[in-house]
Structure formats: structure tokens, C-alpha cells
């Protein structure tokens, strides 16, 4: 034990200090608990309300029927498929681009003015309202390039939207990889790319995955940019199947297909006068939450597997 200079032990009332500190602790704990309860209870009320309205409506038919003017027969097949395909395109575009950009900025980019400008922009882009991305896509993809309101364009907009999130998460994850690991790899004669590909990226993968899922979870609920590019509300057919019987077996026509997504279908049903459509909207909300949960679950599982492999 070292004595603090300038203090004499007998003058300090340790018991009083400890009681006061404990009281402060308790008070802070209580405030924290109350704040947390407010947040959780609000969320729970919303979810329970949604569940009470929507769960009785959920059935296999609801998932496999097309939307209809008759609320009781209406289903969410086309928005469900639309959302799934759009998310697929978003993930395929945003994750590799985001990871590469993050890796470059963190490990390769020279520290100069240009890099600084890029970094500031990436951080700022994460806070830009989503409707702005929608306007960009409308002006650039739809009107200038004439690509139409297709699954591909929607996937591209949402990919742009979540790109900053993926980049920032990737950089955080790479920064958390201990420097000793890089040095050890270099010492063994690995070059920079080998170090990245076989040591840094695998260790950073769980963090990158978390970032990607947070981004995708944001994208799945987005309505504004997709409405802006002109997604449709009523659609009672599916895009062409991605797999076909004749060679080359893969078919990419679905990328150019018109589509609708679940938040748009929900919005449409909520604004109808008939109560039965509002219940359909609640049920759609539950399915949407289920999909988000499923994605999160997948990420947790992947993270767990990768951590074990790395060790």
C-alpha cells in the first residue's frame, strides 16, 4: 500500500465516504432502472399491441396469397418475395463494397487530406435522411440511366443507404484487432495482403457481421427511398424465378422485375378505411419483425461459429 501524499489517514471518514458512495450508487442504479423500464415498457406495449391485433390473422394462407381487395383473403406473398429479393441484392452489393472500403481506409489509405475528406464524408453519410438517397436514385438510376423501378434499383439504393454503416463497423472491428497479430504475421514473412486475408479479416469478421446486420435491419424497414423511386403498391405476380430448367440454369430477369415490399404494403393497408385491413397490416408487421429477428439470429450463430473457428 502506498500512502497518498498530503493526506493523513485519521482525518478521512472512510465509513461516511463509503455510505455516501453506496447511496449514490443505489440512486444511480434506481434511475437507470426507471429509464430502462420506460424504454422497455414502451417497446413492449407496442409489440404486444401489434401481436394481439396481428397474430390471429397469421396463417400459411396469409403468407402465400397475393394482396386482394377482400381483406380476409389478402396475403403478403408478393411483398414478402419482394423484400427478400431486395435484401439479397442489398447484401450482395453493400457488404463486399463496405468491407473493402473499410479495410482500405483503415489499413491501406495514406494519411492525407483526401483520406480525411473521405472519412468525414463517410461518417456524415451515415446520418443523411433516407429520402435523400431515394431522390438520388430517382434522379440518377431511374431517370438518367433509365433503369426503371426494379428490384435491382431498390437493392442499389438500400445498399448505398447502409454502406456507411458497414464501412464504419468494419473499421471499428479492424481497429480492435491487436497490433501484435499483424506484427507476428509480418515477422513470419507474410505480405500485407496475406496478413489481411488470413489474420486480420477473420478476427474482425464477428464485428463486421454485426455491422452488416445492423445495416440490413435498417434497410428492411425502409419505405421512403423505395417509394421515391416509384415502387408499386399492388402487384399480384412474382418476379421470374432465378432458377430455370434449361441452361444456363440461372436467370437474372428478376432483377428487372417490378416489385413491392412489406413496409409499403403495411402503409397501404393502414391507410384503408376497413378495420380488417388494419389487422392485415399488424400481421404484416409481425412477419417483418420475424424476418429482422431471423437475420439477427443468423448473425449471432455465424459469429459464434466463426469465433470458434478462429480460436
Amino acid at each position: 500500500m502506498t500512502h497518498l501524499s498530503g493526506f493523513r489517514e485519521e482525518q478521512i471518514d472512510y465509513a461516511g465516504l463509503i455510505t455516501r458512495a453506496k447511496r449514490g450508487d443505489l440512486l444511480f442504479g434506481l434511475i437507470g432502472l426507471v429509464v430502462m423500464m420506460i424504454a422497455i415498457l414502451t417497446l413492449m406495449t407496442l409489440i404486444v399491441d401489434l401481436a394481439l391485433d396481428g397474430i390471429p390473422r397469421l396463417s400459411w394462407d396469409f403468407l402465400t396469397n397475393f394482396p386482394s381487395r377482400r381483406a380476409a383473403q389478402a396475403g403478403i406473398l408478393s411483398p414478402l418475395v419482394g423484400t427478400t429479393l431486395v435484401m439479397l441484392v442489398t447484401a450482395i452489393l453493400a457488404i463486399p463494397l463496405g468491407v473493402m472500403a473499410g479495410l482500405y481506409l483503415e489499413e491501406y489509405a495514406p494519411k492525407n487530406l483526401l483520406t480525411n475528406i473521405i472519412e468525414i464524408n463517410v461518417t456524415n453519410l451515415a446520418g443523411v435522411p433516407s429520402i435523400i438517397y431515394g431522390l438520388l436514385a430517382l434522379g440518377l438510376f431511374v431517370q438518367t440511366f433509365g433503369m426503371g423501378e426494379t428490384i435491382l434499383v431498390a437493392g442499389m439504393v438500400l445498399a448505398l443507404l447502409i454502406l456507411p454503416v458497414v464501412i464504419v463497423a468494419t473499421r471499428e472491428a479492424i481497429r480492435a484487432v491487436p497490433g501484435e497479430m499483424r506484427e507476428a504475421a509480418f515477422a513470419l514473412g507474410a505480405d500485407k495482403w496475406q496478413t489481411m486475408a488470413f489474420y486480420v479479416l477473420p478476427v474482425a469478421t464477428p464485428g463486421i457481421l454485426t455491422g452488416a446486420i445492423v445495416g440490413l435491419a435498417r434497410a428492411i424497414g425502409e419505405t421512403a427511398p423505395i417509394i421515391t423511386i416509384g415502387a408499386l403498391t399492388f402487384i399480384a405476380f412474382l418476379p421470374p424465378s432465378p432458377i430455370q430448367a434449361e441452361p444456363p440454369f440461372l436467370n437474372f430477369q428478376w432483377l428487372n422485375s417490378p416489385f413491392t415490399v412489406m413496409p409499403i404494403q403495411m402503409f397501404n393497408w393502414v391507410s384503408r378505411p376497413q378495420e380488417a385491413f388494419h389487422i392485415n397490416a399488424a400481421a404484416t408487421g409481425i412477419v417483418l419483425m420475424g424476418m429482422t429477428l431471423l437475420m439477427n439470429g443468423l448473425a449471432v450463430w455465424l459469429r459464434y461459429r466463426i469465433r470458434r473457428q478462429v480460436k
Partner: peptide, 10 residues
């Protein structure tokens, strides 16, 4: 293939 096939199709 996705990148190539996308805009080319009618």
C-alpha cells in the same frame, strides 16, 4: 453475372 445481366435484359 448479376452485374452484367442486370441492365441488359428487356
Amino acid at each position: 453475372a448479376i452485374v452484367m445481366a442486370g441492365p441488359a435484359l428487356a
